[in-house]
């Protein structure tokens, strides 16, 4: 609780020390940081920009490599190639459902696991933590897991896409860690007021843990969105196909190594494998980019514990 007591930390400091130069220094520092981050953003944005520009270039002109600061001609042919097939919308639907339900279940389960483990007095806390941590390092492997999913009769069901990866130990620990950093008086005073564990979790802890919840929701969401091994192994029918599996098929279809064996290109239109690859990146990343700023809302502005506590 030392952190909670600011006066003790700063009592000895001279409040007027370097007062003027500090503000000026800070201003300059702030500007430098902004400029630095802008440069950094450009470097970080480039690959995605490259993908976008390449994906809308005319396929023939995109050949020959080099960097893409602007599109070379405009063509949406590769987009139509990927998006025209009715199957992609089924795949999108499945992936969105998986991401929504999967993330919701994962976050709730993780919170329910993390909270008790963040209560320091809890008996067996270390044992349970250790037990969960152990699974981060050791696992049974694909085949025993497949046999398990099969014995639970989950094969070729929607649940097979959600349950096997429902809780990630890593995310659970991140959340627990965050909950641990919250002042324990909150929990204690609520308990004294007669609140039950579930009420404390949902009414007091979770609102305070919003930043961390948003972070792990992002992690769960992204991994649900990008996962494809579970779909590959646990489902058979194309009605349950997810986006990544669909996209992988599109990709392999156009870049089939044995050129003699494909009929692609019998039509006069030109198909560029590299471009299809770029389109695939774009169609799978853009939805994430649309959602992410909404999640950021939960952790761009600092929170004040006192305000919630009061």
């Amino acid at each position: 609780m030392t952190v909670m007591n600011p006066t003790r930390l700063f009592r000895k400091k001279d409040p007027y020390q370097n007062h003027i130069s500090r503000t000026r220094g800070e201003k300059i520092g702030g500007v430098i940081i902004c400029i630095f981050l802008f440069a950094l953003s450009l470097i970080m944005i480039y690959p995605f920009w490259h993908v976008l520009m390449y994906s809308i270039s005319e396929p023939e002109r995109a050949l020959g490599g080099g960097l893409f600061f602007y599109p070379r001609g405009i063509s949406f042919f590769s987009y139509s190639l990927v998006l025209r097939n009715a199957q992609i919308w089924i795949a999108y639907k499945n992936t969105i459902l998986k991401t929504l339900f999967g993330t919701l279940i994962s976050v709730v389960l993780s919170a329910m696991t993390a909270y008790p483990l963040s209560v320091k007095r809890l008996r067996g806390r270390n044992f349970f933590s250790m037990m969960i941590f152990f699974t981060m390092l050791f696992g049974g492997g694909t085949i025993p897991t497949y046999l398990l999913v099969k014995s639970l009769s989950l094969i070729d069901t929607f649940w097979a896409l959600i349950l096997p990866g429902a809780v990630s130990a890593y995310n659970m620990f991140i959340l627990r860690n965050y909950m641990q950093s919250l002042p324990s008086e909150l929990e204690e005073s609520a308990r004294i007021d007669g609140a039950m564990a579930f009420t404390i979790l949902f009414r007091i802890i979770l609102p305070l843990a919003a930043p961390s919840l948003a972070a792990i929701a992002m992690f769960y969401g992204v991994s649900n969105w990008n996962s494809y091994m579970d779909c590959l192994l646990y489902t058979n029918s194309t009605s349950l196909q997810t986006l990544q599996l669909y996209l992988r098929q599109v990709l392999l279809q156009t870049s089939s190594a044995n050129a003699a064996m494909t009929v692609t290109g019998e039509t006069s239109e030109y198909v560029s494998d590299t471009q299809v690859q770029m389109v695939i990146v774009a169609v799978s990343v853009i939805p994430i980019l649309i959602v992410y700023p909404y999640l950021q809302r939960f952790y761009t502005k600092g929170i004040t514990v006192g305000a919630v506590k009061g």
Binding site: L63, G64, G65, N258, A259, A260, T262, V263, T264, G265, E266, S268, E269, Y270, V271, T274
Partner: peptide
């Protein structure tokens, strides 16, 4: 791609791949 864009004039490939499926589109 080097072959398609005319940066090399000799290339090892199954003739069916180079001359049929992707001809002349690529």
């Amino acid at each position: 791609e080097r072959f398609w864009i005319g940066k090399v004039g000799m290339f090892n490939w199954n003739s069916a791949g180079a001359a049929r499926n992707w001809y002349p589109g690529r």
